[in-house]
Design a protein around this nucleic acid. Structure first.
Lengths: 246, 246
DNA sequence: AGGAACCATTCACATAGGTTTCCTCTTTTG
DNA sequence: CAAAAGAGGAAACCTATGTGAATGGTTCCT
């Protein structure tokens, strides 16, 4: 399938506009990127550790994760990705994958050749800066995760992650009123936060009892945003979103 | 002081050449960057969380750290920086600091105006790609740290960090034969690895007893490289260095 | 609709790593 | 060069989180 689908790139544009200003010409240039759209099953690898991909993957629908595998079956989830994200943008200048990328849920993705993206960055230096910025925000999120894993308690980590994901979903129009889908199992949460699923379960129970959140069949409601951000030390600056957040 | 110092930029060039190829013209362009060299005391902030800097900081001598402060005096060190590093390169496209940068030891740094760097990236798109790559490697290191903090034991984390720092120092000519300076206290190690200094001390004792390392008055010798990399699951791919490593 | 596979939940028990405290050895600095 | 500050080291004790195992509830195939 080609870029004829008028909406495929809408998600990417919405995402980029959440972190930078795009001119009409730049929006057009993005719309004209050649893409190949593909539907994927849940829990399917897209690129693997060690691969040398020649295209980037844009998430259109569903969630994806990046992860590393360690000895003895240990797994670390490095990031969650939602529609509008390009989880392997770093591939443009880092030629060997140092981790894997997979779908979490059933998903639709679009593949964009590196070649076309590099050409775009040459023709539109401002867009190059915006894509660069996107990878820098990715890094800023890793820094925040390092901070969580290093110095925050289990409870703070979970609360912090929920705040982050809510704001990211809201920025691309996939959440509002402190409600969003939370398409991750407790096992996935544990692999992302460096905990066990048993402990995730304990802490979720506590967060529910304190009436900070409601979480049922993949639907999260943050019942007390201010208290949740306070207890988890959450400050959205690191997301570097364009519009100031409540 | 201006770029008249013929050696100030040598460190940056050596660093960039450890991750990419530079043409003679590009080397010249870098040499011509205007810089202001400054000597700093140990443990001195260079840029603070929330600042909006207009220049980047290149480390010439000594070590630096990036860190975040949390409530109740908690601190998380996000990265260690050695000569040749530009710890706040992300400032080029991320205008508000989401963490602080400070010296660890007495240090010499060079400040380069964002303006000059942005101009350089416009005139030399290949150099833009190389600086972008540098920030992507920075992110790759964060991913590895997330993995360490999430799924590696205290012993594995320390061993992994030593391997990483050794290779980075070696890449810019500041280490060889599995020996290097390790200009960090046990407290700083603990704040970087999400542990306490007491536990760092316990684990170092163990690593010494197992004759994997020697660490005395800031001098580290890795006595058994292969075993150390094996026990810590260390794979240097994530450093994306140009030359293959032993 | 029925089963297989996955997920959430809970319990009893185990441990890696944290806390507090104290002492000694270096390093810095006046 | 001596005092002060900082860093390494270590013991006793504590706790947040891990382990393993069992049960019932969901979701997804066929």
């Amino acid at each position: 399938m080609f870029s004829s689908d008028p909406n495929a790139m809408g998600m990417l544009i919405r995402k980029l506009e959440s972190i930078a200003f795009l001119s009409e010409e730049e929006r057009q240039a993005i719309q004209n990127l050649p893409i190949r759209v593909q539907a994927l099953r849940a829990r399917q690898d897209i690129v693997r550790d060690g691969d040398r991909p020649s295209q980037c993957c844009l998430v259109l629908e569903g969630w994806a994760v990046r992860y590393k595998l360690l000895s003895e079956g240990r797994r670390q989830i490095l990031s969650f990705h939602i529609p509008g994200d390009i989880p392997d943008l770093q591939g443009l200048h880092l030629h060997t994958m140092d981790h894997s990328l997979a779908t979490l849920t059933k998903a639709t993705v679009a593949f964009i050749p590196h070649e076309s993206l590099l050409d775009l960055t040459t023709r539109y230096p401002t867009l190059a800066g915006i894509f660069w910025r996107e990878t820098l925000i990715d890094a800023a999120i890793f820094r925040e995760w390092v901070t969580s894993m290093g110095r925050r308690s289990a409870c703070e980590r979970i609360a912090h992650l929920f705040c982050e994901l809510y704001l990211r979903l809201e920025a691309v129009g996939l959440a509002s009123e402190h409600r969003c889908e939370m398409l991750v199992t407790q096992i996935e949460l544990s692999d992302a936060l460096g905990l066990t699923s048993v402990h995730i379960n304990r802490v979720l129970k506590d967060l529910r009892q304190r009436e900070l959140i409601t979480l049922k069949s993949r639907n999260l409601t943050i019942e007390a945003w201010n208290e949740l951000t306070r207890t988890s030390d959450f400050d959205p600056t690191y997301l570097h979103q364009r519009r100031p957040v409540a």
